[in-house]
Simulated scan of single mutants.
Amino acid sequence: MVHGIVAGMSYPLRGLGLLRRSPRLWTFLILPIFVNIIVGALIYVGLLLPAWSGLDGAALWLDQWASGWIAQLPAWMGLLENLILGVAWLVKILLTLALFLLTGFLLLQFGTLIGSPWYGQLSEAVERSRLGYATVIDVGIVRDLGRAILFELKKLLLWGAIALILLLLSFVPGIGPLVISLGWFSLTALITGLDFLDGPSERRRYRFRRKLALIFQALPASASFSVVCCLLITIPFLNLLTIPLCVVAGTMFWCDRLAPRLEPTPPSTEPLPLNE
Protein backbone atom coordinates (compact mmCIF):
# COMPACT_ATOMS: atom_id res chain seq x y z
CA MET A 1 0.00 0.00 0.00
CA VAL A 2 2.77 2.45 0.95
CA HIS A 3 4.63 1.56 -2.25
CA GLY A 4 1.52 2.33 -4.30
CA ILE A 5 1.05 5.71 -2.62
CA VAL A 6 4.67 6.71 -3.22
CA ALA A 7 4.58 5.41 -6.79
CA GLY A 8 1.46 7.43 -7.60
CA MET A 9 2.99 10.61 -6.17
CA SER A 10 6.14 10.14 -8.27
CA TYR A 11 4.51 10.30 -11.70
CA PRO A 12 4.65 14.10 -12.17
CA LEU A 13 8.41 13.86 -11.54
CA ARG A 14 8.62 10.95 -13.98
CA GLY A 15 6.71 13.02 -16.51
CA LEU A 16 9.16 15.88 -16.06
CA GLY A 17 12.04 13.46 -16.62
CA LEU A 18 10.43 12.17 -19.81
CA LEU A 19 9.98 15.72 -21.13
CA ARG A 20 13.63 16.49 -20.41
CA ARG A 21 14.74 13.39 -22.30
CA SER A 22 12.29 13.78 -25.19
CA PRO A 23 12.64 17.04 -27.16
CA ARG A 24 10.03 15.84 -29.69
CA LEU A 25 7.32 16.04 -27.05
CA TRP A 26 7.84 19.77 -26.64
CA THR A 27 6.26 20.33 -30.06
CA PHE A 28 2.98 19.15 -28.53
CA LEU A 29 3.26 21.56 -25.58
CA ILE A 30 3.51 24.95 -27.29
CA LEU A 31 -0.15 25.39 -28.26
CA PRO A 32 -1.63 23.95 -25.02
CA ILE A 33 0.54 26.30 -22.96
CA PHE A 34 -0.54 29.22 -25.18
CA VAL A 35 -4.20 28.22 -24.65
CA ASN A 36 -3.58 27.99 -20.89
CA ILE A 37 -2.10 31.49 -20.86
CA ILE A 38 -5.19 32.94 -22.57
CA VAL A 39 -7.67 31.00 -20.42
CA GLY A 40 -5.61 31.67 -17.30
CA ALA A 41 -5.53 35.42 -18.00
CA LEU A 42 -9.32 35.48 -18.31
CA ILE A 43 -9.79 33.47 -15.11
CA TYR A 44 -7.23 35.45 -13.11
CA VAL A 45 -8.59 38.83 -14.23
CA GLY A 46 -12.26 37.84 -14.09
CA LEU A 47 -12.20 35.71 -10.94
CA LEU A 48 -8.95 35.63 -9.00
CA LEU A 49 -8.36 39.39 -8.68
CA PRO A 50 -11.97 40.27 -7.68
CA ALA A 51 -12.11 37.28 -5.32
CA TRP A 52 -8.77 38.30 -3.84
CA SER A 53 -10.17 41.76 -3.16
CA GLY A 54 -13.17 40.16 -1.48
CA LEU A 55 -10.83 37.94 0.51
CA ASP A 56 -9.07 41.03 1.85
CA GLY A 57 -12.46 42.29 3.04
CA ALA A 58 -13.19 38.93 4.67
CA ALA A 59 -9.77 38.98 6.35
CA LEU A 60 -10.46 42.49 7.71
CA TRP A 61 -13.82 41.30 9.06
CA LEU A 62 -12.12 38.32 10.71
CA ASP A 63 -9.58 40.63 12.36
CA GLN A 64 -12.37 42.84 13.67
CA TRP A 65 -14.33 39.79 14.84
CA ALA A 66 -11.30 38.40 16.68
CA SER A 67 -10.53 41.78 18.24
CA GLY A 68 -14.15 42.12 19.36
CA TRP A 69 -14.11 38.71 21.03
CA ILE A 70 -10.80 39.42 22.72
CA ALA A 71 -12.06 42.79 24.02
CA GLN A 72 -15.04 41.06 25.67
CA LEU A 73 -12.93 38.49 27.47
CA PRO A 74 -12.32 38.92 31.18
CA ALA A 75 -8.72 39.33 32.23
CA TRP A 76 -8.45 35.78 33.59
CA MET A 77 -9.34 34.37 30.11
CA GLY A 78 -6.49 36.15 28.38
CA LEU A 79 -5.08 32.79 27.30
CA LEU A 80 -7.94 32.46 24.81
CA GLU A 81 -6.60 35.44 22.88
CA ASN A 82 -4.02 33.35 21.04
CA LEU A 83 -6.62 30.68 20.31
CA ILE A 84 -9.05 33.18 18.77
CA LEU A 85 -6.29 34.80 16.70
CA GLY A 86 -5.14 31.34 15.62
CA VAL A 87 -8.65 30.42 14.45
CA ALA A 88 -8.89 33.69 12.49
CA TRP A 89 -5.57 33.07 10.75
CA LEU A 90 -6.54 29.46 10.00
CA VAL A 91 -9.76 30.63 8.35
CA LYS A 92 -7.76 33.12 6.26
CA ILE A 93 -5.38 30.41 5.08
CA LEU A 94 -8.21 28.00 4.24
CA LEU A 95 -10.06 30.67 2.25
CA THR A 96 -6.89 31.51 0.31
CA LEU A 97 -6.20 27.85 -0.50
CA ALA A 98 -9.83 27.35 -1.53
CA LEU A 99 -9.57 30.32 -3.90
CA PHE A 100 -6.36 28.98 -5.49
CA LEU A 101 -7.90 25.52 -5.77
CA LEU A 102 -11.01 26.91 -7.47
CA THR A 103 -9.09 28.98 -10.03
CA GLY A 104 -6.73 26.08 -10.79
CA PHE A 105 -9.66 23.69 -11.19
CA LEU A 106 -11.44 26.05 -13.59
CA LEU A 107 -8.23 26.51 -15.57
CA LEU A 108 -7.94 22.72 -15.85
CA GLN A 109 -11.52 22.27 -17.04
CA PHE A 110 -11.54 25.03 -19.65
CA GLY A 111 -7.90 24.67 -20.66
CA THR A 112 -8.09 20.93 -21.33
CA LEU A 113 -11.44 21.28 -23.09
CA ILE A 114 -10.19 23.97 -25.50
CA GLY A 115 -6.76 22.39 -25.88
CA SER A 116 -8.03 18.80 -26.13
CA PRO A 117 -6.76 18.20 -29.72
CA TRP A 118 -3.18 19.02 -28.73
CA TYR A 119 -3.38 17.27 -25.37
CA GLY A 120 -4.69 14.22 -27.23
CA GLN A 121 -1.68 14.25 -29.55
CA LEU A 122 0.66 14.69 -26.58
CA SER A 123 -0.91 11.80 -24.70
CA GLU A 124 -0.84 9.57 -27.78
CA ALA A 125 2.86 10.31 -28.34
CA VAL A 126 3.63 9.41 -24.72
CA GLU A 127 1.61 6.20 -25.02
CA ARG A 128 3.54 5.17 -28.14
CA SER A 129 6.83 5.81 -26.39
CA ARG A 130 5.71 3.86 -23.33
CA LEU A 131 3.99 0.87 -24.91
CA GLY A 132 5.35 0.90 -28.43
CA TYR A 133 1.86 1.43 -29.83
CA ALA A 134 -1.22 3.57 -29.23
CA THR A 135 -4.75 2.23 -29.48
CA VAL A 136 -7.08 4.67 -31.25
CA ILE A 137 -10.66 3.75 -32.13
CA ASP A 138 -11.86 6.29 -34.69
CA VAL A 139 -15.54 7.23 -34.33
CA GLY A 140 -15.60 10.38 -36.44
CA ILE A 141 -15.31 14.03 -35.44
CA VAL A 142 -19.03 14.51 -34.72
CA ARG A 143 -19.30 11.55 -32.38
CA ASP A 144 -15.93 12.43 -30.88
CA LEU A 145 -17.22 15.91 -30.04
CA GLY A 146 -20.39 14.42 -28.60
CA ARG A 147 -18.38 12.11 -26.36
CA ALA A 148 -16.31 15.04 -25.11
CA ILE A 149 -19.42 17.04 -24.21
CA LEU A 150 -21.04 13.99 -22.60
CA PHE A 151 -17.89 13.37 -20.55
CA GLU A 152 -18.04 16.90 -19.20
CA LEU A 153 -21.75 16.58 -18.40
CA LYS A 154 -21.23 13.29 -16.56
CA LYS A 155 -18.41 14.83 -14.54
CA LEU A 156 -20.78 17.66 -13.65
CA LEU A 157 -23.47 15.19 -12.57
CA LEU A 158 -20.95 13.25 -10.49
CA TRP A 159 -19.75 16.48 -8.90
CA GLY A 160 -23.33 17.56 -8.16
CA ALA A 161 -24.33 14.23 -6.59
CA ILE A 162 -21.31 14.12 -4.27
CA ALA A 163 -21.58 17.85 -3.52
CA LEU A 164 -25.17 17.34 -2.36
CA ILE A 165 -24.06 14.58 0.01
CA LEU A 166 -21.28 16.81 1.37
CA LEU A 167 -23.73 19.65 1.85
CA LEU A 168 -25.99 17.41 3.93
CA LEU A 169 -23.01 16.16 5.98
CA SER A 170 -21.93 19.74 6.68
CA PHE A 171 -24.90 20.10 9.04
CA VAL A 172 -23.67 17.25 11.28
CA PRO A 173 -22.60 18.90 14.57
CA GLY A 174 -18.92 18.69 15.44
CA ILE A 175 -17.60 16.96 12.31
CA GLY A 176 -19.45 18.95 9.63
CA PRO A 177 -16.73 21.53 8.78
CA LEU A 178 -13.97 18.90 8.74
CA VAL A 179 -16.00 16.50 6.60
CA ILE A 180 -16.93 19.13 4.05
CA SER A 181 -13.36 20.48 3.80
CA LEU A 182 -11.83 17.05 3.23
CA GLY A 183 -14.75 16.05 1.05
CA TRP A 184 -14.46 19.04 -1.28
CA PHE A 185 -10.73 18.50 -1.73
CA SER A 186 -11.21 14.77 -2.34
CA LEU A 187 -13.96 15.48 -4.87
CA THR A 188 -11.73 17.98 -6.69
CA ALA A 189 -8.88 15.48 -6.70
CA LEU A 190 -11.18 12.78 -8.11
CA ILE A 191 -12.29 14.98 -11.02
CA THR A 192 -8.66 16.00 -11.57
CA GLY A 193 -7.60 12.36 -11.72
CA LEU A 194 -10.38 11.61 -14.21
CA ASP A 195 -9.13 14.41 -16.46
CA PHE A 196 -5.45 13.46 -16.43
CA LEU A 197 -6.06 9.71 -16.87
CA ASP A 198 -8.64 10.19 -19.59
CA GLY A 199 -6.39 10.28 -22.69
CA PRO A 200 -5.69 6.55 -23.21
CA SER A 201 -9.16 5.57 -21.96
CA GLU A 202 -10.89 7.95 -24.35
CA ARG A 203 -8.85 6.74 -27.33
CA ARG A 204 -10.20 3.27 -26.51
CA ARG A 205 -13.71 4.79 -26.22
CA TYR A 206 -14.33 3.49 -22.72
CA ARG A 207 -17.61 4.38 -21.04
CA PHE A 208 -17.59 6.93 -18.22
CA ARG A 209 -18.34 4.26 -15.62
CA ARG A 210 -15.34 2.23 -16.73
CA LYS A 211 -13.06 5.27 -16.60
CA LEU A 212 -14.25 5.92 -13.06
CA ALA A 213 -13.86 2.25 -12.11
CA LEU A 214 -10.25 2.24 -13.35
CA ILE A 215 -9.36 4.95 -10.83
CA PHE A 216 -10.73 2.87 -7.96
CA GLN A 217 -9.04 -0.28 -9.28
CA ALA A 218 -5.68 1.50 -9.22
CA LEU A 219 -6.00 2.65 -5.60
CA PRO A 220 -4.06 3.82 -3.61
CA ALA A 221 -1.66 4.91 -6.36
CA SER A 222 -4.40 6.67 -8.32
CA ALA A 223 -5.44 8.59 -5.18
CA SER A 224 -1.94 9.87 -4.42
CA PHE A 225 -1.41 10.72 -8.09
CA SER A 226 -4.68 12.68 -8.20
CA VAL A 227 -3.89 14.55 -4.97
CA VAL A 228 -0.43 15.61 -6.18
CA CYS A 229 -1.83 16.77 -9.52
CA CYS A 230 -4.58 18.65 -7.68
CA LEU A 231 -1.95 20.46 -5.63
CA LEU A 232 0.12 21.25 -8.72
CA ILE A 233 -2.79 22.89 -10.55
CA THR A 234 -3.53 24.97 -7.43
CA ILE A 235 -0.29 26.98 -7.69
CA PRO A 236 -1.12 30.23 -9.55
CA PHE A 237 0.75 30.84 -12.83
CA LEU A 238 2.85 27.70 -12.39
CA ASN A 239 -0.28 25.69 -13.22
CA LEU A 240 -0.03 27.02 -16.78
CA LEU A 241 2.87 24.57 -17.12
CA THR A 242 1.93 21.84 -14.67
CA ILE A 243 -1.32 20.97 -16.48
CA PRO A 244 0.51 19.70 -19.61
CA LEU A 245 3.02 18.00 -17.30
CA CYS A 246 0.21 16.15 -15.53
CA VAL A 247 -1.24 15.06 -18.89
CA VAL A 248 2.12 13.41 -19.60
CA ALA A 249 2.25 11.94 -16.09
CA GLY A 250 -1.32 10.64 -16.34
CA THR A 251 -0.60 8.84 -19.60
CA MET A 252 2.53 7.30 -18.10
CA PHE A 253 0.51 6.19 -15.07
CA TRP A 254 -2.14 4.62 -17.33
CA CYS A 255 0.46 2.78 -19.41
CA ASP A 256 2.39 1.48 -16.39
CA ARG A 257 -0.40 0.60 -13.96
CA LEU A 258 -3.57 0.07 -16.00
CA ALA A 259 -2.53 -1.16 -19.44
CA PRO A 260 -0.91 -4.41 -18.17
CA ARG A 261 -4.20 -5.56 -16.63
CA LEU A 262 -6.37 -4.39 -19.53
CA GLU A 263 -4.50 -5.41 -22.66
CA PRO A 264 -1.36 -7.46 -23.23
CA THR A 265 1.39 -5.67 -25.11
CA PRO A 266 1.78 -7.09 -28.63
CA PRO A 267 5.05 -9.11 -28.64
CA SER A 268 6.26 -7.42 -31.82
CA THR A 269 6.22 -3.91 -30.36
CA GLU A 270 8.79 -2.13 -28.21
CA PRO A 271 8.72 1.34 -26.67
CA LEU A 272 9.60 3.99 -29.22
CA PRO A 273 12.39 6.47 -28.38
CA LEU A 274 11.49 10.13 -28.25
CA ASN A 275 14.90 11.62 -27.47
CA GLU A 276 15.54 12.79 -30.98
Score class of each variant (00 low, 15 high):
L187K: 02
G174K: 07
T112K: 13
A71P: 10
L197D: 06
A259R: 13
V179G: 12
A88G: 11
C255H: 09
A41F: 05
L73M: 12
G250K: 05
S222V: 03
D56M: 14
K92S: 06
Y44A: 07
P266I: 01
E127M: 03
L79N: 13
L145K: 09
G193M: 04
A163T: 12
D195H: 08
D195C: 00
T265D: 01
L102E: 04
V227D: 07
A161I: 07
R14H: 15
F151Y: 08
R21T: 09
F151G: 08
T265E: 04
L97W: 02
F151E: 11
L231F: 05
F225R: 09
K211T: 05
L169D: 09
F100T: 01
P273G: 07
I93Y: 00
T188S: 12
R24Y: 04
L231I: 00
L60I: 06
L190K: 00
S123N: 13
F196N: 02
F237T: 03
L131G: 04
G193T: 09
A161P: 03
K92T: 02
G8C: 01
E276G: 15
P32V: 01
F225P: 07
G174W: 06
P74Q: 11
L164N: 07
G250Q: 08
V136Q: 12
G57S: 05
R204G: 07
G183L: 07
E263A: 09
S22T: 15
T265C: 01
A189N: 10
S123C: 13
L62M: 09
P200Q: 05
F253D: 00
R20G: 03
L164Y: 10
L262P: 02
V91G: 01
S224H: 03
I141H: 15
L49K: 11
W61T: 03
L25K: 04
M9I: 15
L262Q: 10
G4V: 06
C230W: 02
T269Y: 13
G115R: 04
R21I: 02
R143A: 15
L131K: 05
P271M: 04
W52T: 12
R21D: 12
P273Y: 01
R210M: 12
F216L: 15
S22P: 06
N239H: 03
S186T: 09
D138F: 14
G250E: 06
R203A: 02
P236V: 01
F110S: 08
